[in-house]
């Protein structure tokens, strides 16, 4: 049976996705010119990167139409990455003598 239901994006849609990513790239460079004060410059830069990454994952990697299990795998990888950061920072941010010799 060749009745497969793979999602096929139109060329127009794929160009639209790429265009939105180009625009967001411009915005992320643009905001460094207007000098947003600390720490908001970092927050804005990361927020834009997260939006771009989600656009790529959803519409280029087709997670939007994919099986929920693959979406779950992606979410779990992010969850464990955040856990890795969180637990490590609980150590490194609260050291009395923070800096090792390296």
């Amino acid at each position: 049976m060749s009745a497969h239901h793979h999602h096929i994006s139109t060329a127009k849609f794929l160009w639209g996705v790429a265009t939105s990513l180009f625009i967001l790239t411009f915005i992320t460079v643009f905001v460094t010119w207007i000098h947003i004060p600390e720490p908001w410059n970092v927050v804005v830069a990361i927020a834009i990167a997260v939006v771009k990454a989600l656009i790529v994952a959803a519409f280029f990697m087709n997670l939007w139409w994919d099986s929920k299990f693959n979406v779950l795998l992606f979410i779990m990888s992010i969850a464990f990455f955040l856990l890795l950061i969180g637990i490590t920072l609980l150590d490194t941010l609260y050291r009395v003598d923070p800096v090792p010799s390296f």
């Binding site: 693959n70 795998l73 992606f74 990888s77 464990f80 890795l84 490590t88 920072l89 923070p98």
Partner: peptide, 27 residues
């Protein structure tokens, strides 16, 4: 699905380096 599982390991592989970046940037 196999590829997505591989990509999970890739995210955590790079994740270690992103963590090093974050720890040193905080210091």
């Amino acid at each position: 699905m196999g590829m997505w599982i591989f990509l999970v390991t890739e995210i955590l592989f790079f994740g270690g380096l992103f963590l090093a970046y974050i720890v040193y940037r905080a210091w």
